[in-house]
Amino acid sequence: MAAKRKKFGSSSRHNLFAYGLLFPSFIFLTLFTFYPTLKSFQLSFYSGPMTRLQFSGMDQYKEVFSDEIFRKVILNNILFMIGTVPTSLFLAMYLAIWLNKKMAGSSLLRTSFFYPTIIPLIAVANIWLFIYTPQYGLLDNFLHLFGRGDTSWLGNPNTVMIAMIFMIIWKDTGFYMIFYLAGLQNLPRDVYEAAEIEGAKPFQMFRHITFPLLMPTTLFVMIVAITNSFKNVDHLYIMTKGGPDNASNLLLYHIYEAAFTNWDLGKAAVLTVVLIVIMLSITAFNYLYLDRKIHY
């Protein structure tokens, strides 16, 4: 009996000790993750100014979902994701496979592909703004060589998204490449040797060995890339402000506009909830669906 009590006493002290260690992290998680998440949900059902909030049920959701700009922004974000994710993943895998082999200059090339990762997106936006400037910009300068006239890459709703997508592919591919390089290092060598003895061609080896074995890397990088396509919007502030006519606007930037340019708090809360739900579904999809599929 005494022994049992002693054990109980020490284990509850043990618990307290562990909670104490978690406490510092927990304060900031509560303040800046849990509370704001719940607050967004709550605010999304209330309208009016901060001091005189009134319960309005689903009204603000209805308003947002029937807003044409909102639909456009969501569509843009999906387009942006489709434009950036597969291409940069494919390029990253392609580069990694060839740069994994020892050859003169491969480390120089790796540097050239990786350095955009560490440059702040806002600085990237400054640089690419010059590149895309009509007439004087680097791109138009280059296209003049082929007799093409001036193009307003960022001023035209038809080209602005492509211009953004191209820039983000440039920025992120090198980052994804290093995950593939790491993945390639872990592939079993004997499988390739066996395949070579069997007389497999390089492309067959890629299709039947490399590609399937890199699947876990691909899925991991894909989740990172999809998340990035919703999270990184800094460049819009410098390059287009979401324009022209919302043609390049993305969800997080739209939240910024709603909350800090138009001071429409209810709308900002609804939009934040939408973004939170998107983020949670991406992760849920990853854990519940993909994680089960990749264990072969």
Partner: peptide, 18 residues
């Protein structure tokens, strides 16, 4: 784990309130 999904970047608006 929740913070990995709901990163501070996307909570711009409610974190401003906090």
């Amino acid at each position: 784990l929740l913070q990995l999904m709901i990163q501070p970047e996307i909570l711009l608006f409610p974190n401003y309130q906090v």
